[in-house]
């Protein structure tokens, strides 16, 4: 079997694996962004309890490996709480909650990087904390966050490969299945690597041009 044939045979299934990878990443990052924003705001609030909750979330997630979190959500929680969850949802939840913890710190750093005079100026005009945060601080913070956010995006995209352990047919799992039948590890893993690489390069360059357009 020459390489062209191997490629023709395995590419469609790798491509559908890549689609799953991208879907999981996209959904997980939506969750991560929401979690990051929510807990990020909690972590800078004056309320000790809210700060504490945010701290616990970040520490708990950063202190455990993603693979354990994925197993916990897919096998652990359903057994303990008696419910069913499909692998895809568990995978999205695992990567989302995991990236969310890192996003908390990204949001926190972004908000802290905005000069504190901005909040004072907004407040002294009579705007509430909430409005000042939403319309003055966050728009500036988000621009400062872009590089860190893209970094997290890339990490999470690669992290989805870990979800092969709970049987999701994302890119890495698709590869394993192909290799199990054709034993062509070198070529197949090579192709998979290139696919991850190309997607991430595309992402990085789009992000960089986006960043340039958004500089204040």
């Amino acid at each position: 079997m020459d390489f062209i044939e191997l490629f023709r045979e395995s590419f469609p299934s790798l491509l559908s694996g890549l689609t799953v990878t991208l879907k999981i990443t996209a959904l997980a990052l939506v969750i991560a962004t929401l979690l990051g924003l929510l807990f990020g705001l909690m972590s800078i609030s004056n309320n000790k309890l809210l700060m504490f909750i945010a701290r616990i979330y970040v520490d708990l997630i950063r202190g455990t490996p993603l693979i354990v979190q994925a197993f916990f959500i897919y096998f652990g929680l359903p057994t303990a709480l008696d419910f069913k969850i499909n692998a895809f949802s568990a995978g999205v939840a695992a990567v989302g909650i995991n990236a969310g913890a890192y996003m908390v710190e990204i949001f926190r750093a972004g908000i802290m990087a905005v000069d504190k005079g901005q909040m004072e100026a907004a407040r002294s005009l009579g705007l509430s904390y909430r409005k000042s945060m939403a319309k003055i601080i966050l728009p500036q913070a988000v621009r400062k966050m872009i590089p860190a956010f893209i970094n997290q995006f890339i990490i999470s995209l690669k992290d989805t490969s870990i979800l092969s352990v709970i049987g999701i047919r994302e890119l890495t799992q698709s590869g394993e299945i192909i290799i199990a039948s054709n034993y062509r590890a070198f070529e197949t893993w090579g192709m998979i690597g290139i696919m991850y690489f190309v997607i991430i390069m595309l992402l990085s360059y789009t992000a960089r041009s986006l960043e340039r357009r958004l500089v204040i």
């Binding site: 000069d115 004072e120 100026a121 907004a122 005009l125 500036q140």
Partner: peptide, 27 residues
């Protein structure tokens, strides 16, 4: 209360993501 009191800062604190007009119309 703060609506009644205008404040001008040493470091200006204009909103950098808004143009001058929107800085003024925002509040």
């Amino acid at each position: 209360l703060r609506e009644k009191l205008g404040m001008v800062f040493q470091s200006f604190n204009l909103f950098p993501h808004l143009n001058v007009l929107n800085n003024i119309t925002f509040a």
